[in-house]
Design a protein around this nucleic acid. Structure first.
Ligand SMILES: [Mn+2]
Ligand SMILES: [Mn+2]
Ligand SMILES: [Zn+2]
Ligand SMILES: [Zn+2]
Lengths: 153, 153
DNA sequence: GGATTATTGAAAATGGTTTTCATTACTACA
DNA sequence: TGTAGTAATGAAAACCATTTTCAATAATCC
């Protein structure tokens, strides 16, 4: 697989957005992790190989990528925004979340996702009509206590 | 309907939590609004009738009520936590959200909620087993553009 | 009433995120 | 290959919702 650059680079050049080292590193980090990283998580990982890249650039890049619909921003309630690669080539597919309210552990799940999305699809159609919305996304999360935390409480 | 105080007061006295004017006013405001108020929204409403109640108390009360499971805290991504009365007597029943990503308008809906919750129930059972979680809540939100905003974009 | 202890407001601190601004790095084009 | 135009960057400062501190006050129980 050689030739042109990665899938996301054309999105950049089309919009006069330059391909820079910082942006490349950040996307790679998000691509390689199974976790939901915060800005400073990413900063620390970036810092290992690129100690010249500042936290400000991390924030700016994440906002840019969010607006280009390359990453999605989440707030799980622990005071840090968290980011994950959107459903792009090489990204995770659409999934929902299972969140421990105590230790904040987050599990991506796809079990029953077809049935869920099917059911949500009907709701979406109905809501679009009734409230005259143009719906293009949904979020489903379950909350509770994980294996470790449910025994301690 | 007279006699003892409102439904929530017994929850207080059981836990050595005192019934104060501030707490009473805040619960009443949350009870009377159809909106999803932020701490400073509530502060401003409180200030009209009780200018002696400070913003700190609003925050403290909301955290208390959240921990007593009387209100639920939401983050819709606009930089302010928002609160709504939980499914208590006099509160809204369980519902899901339809959110405009542009103007941040939020609609509570219950359409298809039975089908949704039924479907989510199956998922919940499966996830509980598979990941050994004790699940006690879920969140479903649809995102898109509302009537007004979809024409402008 | 008085002792006990929860609650409170004001001010200060906190901490994640954003803004400012001067500098640097691309990119296009002559 | 130089040069103008513009996008991107880092450091420091600003921002701002929320939390903490601490001395004063008010609810509860006797
Ligand atoms: Mn995820
Ligand atoms: Mn609601
Ligand atoms: Zn846990
Ligand atoms: Zn709107």
């Amino acid at each position: 697989m050689h030739g042109k650059g990665p899938w996301w680079q054309e999105k950049f050049t089309q919009n006069c957005v330059r391909v820079t080292a910082a942006r490349e590193v950040i996307i790679n980090i998000l691509h390689d992790t199974p976790d939901h990283l915060s800005a400073s998580d990413i900063y620390m990982k970036v810092h290992v190989t690129n100690p010249d890249i500042g936290l400000t650039t991390i924030y700016r890049t994440l906002e840019l990528l969010e607006q280009m619909r390359i990453v999605q921003k989440f707030d799980f309630g622990d005071g840090h925004a968290r980011y994950e690669l959107l459903n792009n080539p090489g990204g995770k597919g659409h999934h929902h979340h299972l969140i421990c309210v105590k230790c904040k552990k987050i599990i991506d799940y796809k079990d029953f996702i077809d049935e869920e999305v099917n059911c949500l699809g009907k709701t979406q159609d109905f809501l679009s009509q009734k409230y005259n919305f143009h719906i293009n996304d949904h979020l489903v999360s379950f909350y509770g206590f994980c294996e470790n935390c449910k025994s301690e409480s």
